[in-house]
């Protein structure tokens, strides 16, 4: 389980997160929502040790984040940053193999290669495995990085705006893969996402931030309500029934 308390983060004089605390459930898709500058990405960065908070602590599976050995933690938790990129020429398969980095000492075993193959299959990247990542389209590249995160085989997978600049079918494809990870492999996926309808359709649990504060937290059904969403995004949002789901309308 991941929990954190008293998180404070400042950039210069500007406070981005103030006194944020929560315990997050496991084996769910947890969506972090909020307007621009609400502190979602910063919070995700702190949970994944990419950023150091000015105050507060993060606890992962009963151990403080700074007591974890880097490599041990990389077997339990991974993060995929916003629009990842690399100057080097790396093929898709090599990239996905990097996912096995914390588990091996340099040589990939049969077992490792099997896991890499599964990740490629699951993301549909098998046909592209010998392509260089800088030759791929934006959506394919994102998929390749997600395959790497899958190959890392961690209990917690954190994704910072993975749907940025992707078209609808790509976005839906990624969300379906994340669903499968939760259902079939009992992973916990934490995701920063802007499109509120993707949240409504795919997320199990929602953490809503506004102005650096954690305003609402709970099951998706209890958060996807017009009064709550309108407060978080400071704009009128109405919620309609759509089959057994909810759809949000804003303008």
């Amino acid at each position: 389980m991941i929990s954190f308390e008293g998180i404070l983060k400042k950039y210069g004089k500007e406070t981005v997160l103030k006194n944020v605390a929560a315990s997050l459930p496991t084996e769910k898709i947890i969506a972090f929502i909020g307007g621009n500058g609400a502190g979602k990405s910063t919070l995700l960065g702190i949970i994944s040790r990419l950023l150091d908070p000015n105050a507060g602590s993060v606890c992962i599976d009963g151990r403080m984040i700074n007591q974890w050995n880097c490599r041990e933690l990389a077997k339990h938790l991974t993060i995929l940053g916003q629009s990842p990129n690399s100057a080097a020429r790396i093929t898709v398969e090599e990239l996905v193999s990097f996912g096995r980095f914390p588990h091996t000492n340099g040589t990939l075993s049969e077992e490792d290669m099997k896991i890499v193959g599964e990740a490629l299959d699951m993301t549909g990247m098998q046909p592209f495995k010998n392509r260089f990542i800088d030759e791929l389209s934006g959506g394919q590249r994102q998929m390749a990085y997600i395959a790497m995160a899958i190959a890392q085989d961690t209990k917690y997978i954190l994704l910072d705006e993975p749907l940025n600049n992707l078209d609808m079918s790509r976005s839906a494809g990624i969300m379906k893969i994340l669903r499968r990870l939760v259902k079939e492999k009992s992973k916990t996926v934490m995701i920063v996402i802007h499109d509120i309808n993707f949240v409504s359709f795919y997320a199990d649990y929602i953490v809503a931030l506004k102005d650096g504060e954690l305003r609402y937290m709970g099951d998706a059904d209890s958060i996807i309500r017009p009064e709550i969403l309108s407060d978080i995004f400071s704009t009128d949002i109405s919620v309609e029934k759509f089959g057994d789901r909810k759809i949000c309308i804003y303008y």
């Binding site: 880097c70 990389a74 940053g81 990129n85 790396i90 980095f101 000492n105």
Partner: peptide, 18 residues
Amino acid sequence: RSLNAIVLGRRQAIALGV
């Protein structure tokens, strides 16, 4: 080996446990 992973950039290197 850590250098190989740093090719992916700071964030991804840390995510891989470097």
